[in-house]
Amino acid sequence: MIYTVTFNPSLDYVIQTEKLTPGEISRTAGEHIYPGGKGNNVSVMLSNLGRKSRALGFVAGFTGDALEQMLNDCGCDTDFIRLGQGFTRINVKINDGQETEINGQGPSITEEALQELYGRLDRLEADDFLVLAGSIPDTMPPDIYEKIMARLDGRGIHIAVDATKELLLNVLKYHPFLIKPNNHELGEMFGTVLETEEEMIRHAGMLQEKGARNVLVSMAGDGAILVTEDKTICRSQPPKGEVKNSVGAGDSMVAGFLTGWLNTGIYEKAFKLGIAAGSATAFTSWLAGKEEIVELLGEEPSEYGL
């Protein structure tokens, strides 16, 4: 089973408008509400690719009810912890030719609720996969990823981590199965700017020296690089298409990679499916469906277990 954890999930209210003028009334040309949060995005994409997962995290209020129902409608299993106060945050994303985001704060997470999450994670078994993705709310310990991985260390659980800087660096000693920094984040971890693929490969190797097994470096319009645990290097340019949406593309890449690996056991195929999933989401208004991904893959889907 694959489990995902989203510490600060959301309802994403996505608006298209011709022009956003501060201080004036603007009217929408289109609007949608989606379940949000990086771990939740991974769960939805896994479902789209035919893989079951269970979404963990915290929800509150009527927005939490709506979020859970939306994820269930997308085919995701949920096992959220319900908080007694507050409500799941609403993030507003406005597109008027450029993207403007206003992210909500989210509810306070109590120590009791955190212990309940630990209890759920204690049920994971050997060869399960766990995805830890996204930011940490201010009400939670800043080393929560590290505490979770220390708790699960030595139990044969494969963990994918999509986080930034210290959140990521501090967990490498627990040998995560997969980490997915983008090229800018990779450079920031070493206090430098990486300009060539060779530099990125070298610094990905440095993260492996610190404990990471597989390092997937996303580079937006320049594609991605994978450095595997057996030192195989995969490079790819992204498929051609019109970028319509930047939200969830990285999460889709993680879901595609995990699906490809679990279906085939071949890192090169996992990498290709990850690229196709991430790109397909970038070319659509939300998370891409299986048909869009297969079209970009350009190969027989049965070779990828789809």
Rank of each mutant, 00 (worst) to 15 (best):
T4Q: 07
V5E: 02
T6H: 05
P9Q: 05
L11D: 05
V14S: 07
E18G: 15
T21Y: 03
G23N: 13
A29C: 08
A29P: 01
G30W: 12
G30C: 07
G30S: 14
I33L: 14
K38G: 03
V42M: 13
S43T: 14
N48F: 08
K52Y: 08
K52L: 07
R54E: 10
G57S: 03
F62M: 14
M70E: 12
L71T: 12
D73N: 05
C74R: 15
G75E: 13
I81S: 09
I90K: 05
V92M: 12
G97L: 09
E101D: 07
E101S: 08
G106Y: 00
I109G: 05
I109P: 02
E111N: 07
E112P: 03
E112R: 06
Q115H: 09
L121V: 09
D128R: 00
L132Y: 06
L132Q: 01
L132E: 04
I144M: 05
Y145W: 02
E146T: 06
A150M: 01
L152P: 02
D153G: 03
I157Y: 12
H158C: 06
V161L: 00
T164R: 07
T164Q: 12
L167T: 02
L168A: 01
L169T: 03
H175M: 01
L178A: 10
I179Y: 04
N182I: 11
N182D: 04
N183K: 15
N183F: 15
E185I: 09
E185K: 05
E188N: 11
M189Y: 02
T192G: 07
L194T: 09
T196S: 15
T196Q: 13
E199H: 13
M200A: 03
I201P: 14
G205N: 12
M206T: 14
E209Q: 14
K210L: 15
G211I: 10
A220L: 02
D222I: 06
G223P: 02
I225A: 03
V227D: 10
E229A: 15
E229Q: 12
D230F: 05
C234Q: 01
R235D: 13
V243E: 10
K244C: 13
N245P: 01
S246R: 05
S246Y: 04
G250C: 07
S252M: 00
M253A: 13
V254N: 00
A255S: 15
A255V: 00
G256T: 10
F257H: 04
T259Y: 07
L262Q: 13
F271S: 12
A276R: 10
A276M: 11
F283E: 00
T284C: 10
T284F: 06
S285R: 14
E292C: 09
E295W: 09
G298V: 09
E299C: 13
E300K: 13
Y304H: 05
L306H: 08
L306T: 07
